[in-house]
Simulated scan of single mutants.
Amino acid sequence: MANEIQKFEVEVIEISAKESYSDTDFWLKLRRFARKAGREVVEKALWLYYAMQRPETPVWAKRTIIGALVYFLLPFDLVADLAPLMGFSDDLSVLLIAVSTVAAYITPAIKDQARRKASEWFD
């Protein structure tokens, strides 16, 4: 029926960000997959990482950043990271949502720091 509302069941996987995020894991994945992920993904991840390190970034923004970085670090995604051409598209989407949410805390200095770090891997 046209007026009938369909119900969708969604499995929710609860993850504790504190248990799933570590700086070491972040840097290991970034170094390992930098070329495969592409410069845009790497720079956005670095923007968030460096913004999270700043004491001026409020706790709510740091939580948003950690959530995005945890998704980036997870070995399972909506789209597998090893899939050619598509593997990091979902990661980029999550990173971009986080970037837009905390944009006020991503300074030009952070962007420059991320660009320089990415240049080590891409130039």
Rank of each mutant, 00 (worst) to 15 (best):
F122H: 02
W27C: 12
L48D: 05
Y49R: 05
I5F: 14
L28S: 13
V42W: 03
R63T: 06
I13F: 06
P58N: 11
V10T: 14
E11D: 13
P84S: 05
S20C: 06
A83C: 00
G87Y: 05
D91V: 04
A80H: 03
Y49V: 00
T24R: 15
V102H: 07
G87V: 01
L92M: 08
I66D: 10
L73S: 13
M86C: 03
T24A: 15
F26D: 12
A83Q: 01
S16L: 07
V59M: 12
A61Y: 03
P108C: 01
L69Y: 03
F8R: 15
K29D: 10
M86I: 08
K7G: 08
A68K: 00
F26V: 13
A103P: 00
N3Y: 11
R39V: 10
N3E: 15
I106T: 05
D23L: 09
S16Y: 07
V94Q: 08
W47F: 11
L82C: 00
R35L: 07
P84A: 02
V79Q: 04
V12C: 08
F72S: 05
L73F: 05
A61Q: 00
L85F: 11
Y71I: 02
L78I: 10
R39E: 15
I106N: 03
F72N: 02
T64E: 11
R35T: 10
E19V: 01
N3A: 14
R35S: 11
A83W: 00
R63D: 09
A114W: 04
A45V: 09
S93G: 11
E120W: 09
M1V: 14
A17R: 10
E11R: 13
S20P: 00
D25H: 14
V99Y: 08
I13D: 08
I110E: 06
S89Y: 06
A34P: 13
R31N: 15
R32E: 14
L48G: 06
Y21W: 13
R115I: 01
L30A: 03
S93Y: 12
I66E: 12
R35W: 08
M1E: 14
L92F: 09
E14G: 06
A68Q: 09
A98E: 01
I106L: 02
E14C: 07
M1Y: 14
F76M: 06
L92T: 06
V79I: 13
S22D: 13
S119W: 09
F72W: 08
